[in-house]
Design a protein around this nucleic acid. Structure first.
Ligand SMILES: [Mn+2]
Ligand SMILES: [Mn+2]
Ligand SMILES: [Zn+2]
Ligand SMILES: [Zn+2]
Lengths: 143, 143
DNA sequence: TAAGTATTGAAAATTTATCGCAAATAGCCC
DNA sequence: GGGCTATTTGCGATAAATTTTCAATACTTA
């Protein structure tokens, strides 16, 4: 569980940009923080999970919040399956990781690699880009 | 220019799976083979290019063909921009490469890295997955 | 060349995500 | 706490990308 962002830390970061902490945003972040490592949620997944918790948050707000948190660097947007995005906490080193995905059944395995992180920062630096995230996605077929 | 798949090689590979070589499929592959290195086409891009060449191929067929060629491993599907996919030839080593993408303006730089290819094949092997493609995508902001 | 099946084009449908707007509410000052 | 104001929400409408349906067409193979 990632405890980087307590509700008050989230509030501070939001308010610094003129945005507001709402119960919806707090609950959504909490769900990602309590999500077992290796799980990834789509907007629909998240919305269903909220309905299950009797948290009534509209699908529009789910989409808006996912986009906001990803742009703030709190969540990471992943392309693990066809047709929709998945999200997870954007964890810094040493929890930063990559994904091995089966293109047939979408089964996904996470793995860490400091050398990839090195390649990523070296390339960004070489072209003067400011690094935000680097993801190695391995498309493969599971046994 | 990639000459791995001549029309007859494409035909052989299609027929082996009970599929057929059509003029549409042949033309679409040719466009990718003649595309300058570093260019990436969306379905709409490709369709416009076909109209320019007075090749009358429906948008449905463009989508169907892109999906088919990608599943055959002939094309590579890339997530370089929000909202739509891009495609390029899936070139083996030593032309295999990765992408540094500006999330603000979508400017994309290609780079090669044999160490990433090594990480990719090692991970796939470790879990018994059959490797299809591995792509490092670096999200960053250009200067 | 004829039979049989895969493929195509065109339009409709589906899926994913965004938008407009009125009502609700967080942050702020008193 | 009570009001002020800009932000956020929920809802329905809308947009954009991709897929599907189906009748007509065209590959393959024998
Ligand atoms: Mn993950
Ligand atoms: Mn490329
Ligand atoms: Zn699988
Ligand atoms: Zn840029």
């Amino acid at each position: 569980m990632n405890t980087l962002y307590s509700p008050s830390a989230l509030k501070a970061e939001l308010n610094a940009k003129g945005w507001r902490l709402t119960p919806q945003r707090e609950v959504i972040l909490k769900i990602f923080q309590e999500l077992p490592q290796g799980n990834h949620l789509s907007a629909e997944d998240l919305h269903e999970q909220l309905v299950g918790l009797e948290q009534d948050i509209s699908l529009s707000t789910v989409y808006r919040t996912l986009k906001l948190l990803a742009r703030m660097g709190i969540l990471r947007q992943l392309e693990l399956a066809e047709g929709h995005k998945h999200y997870e906490l954007n964890q810094p080193y040493p929890n930063h990781h990559h994904h091995l995905v089966c293109v047939k059944c979408n089964k996904t395995i996470e793995f860490k690699s400091s050398s990839i992180l090195q390649v990523g920062s070296k390339q960004a630096q070489e072209y003067g880009y400011k690094l935000l995230d680097c993801q190695l996605t391995i498309h493969a077929i599971c046994p």
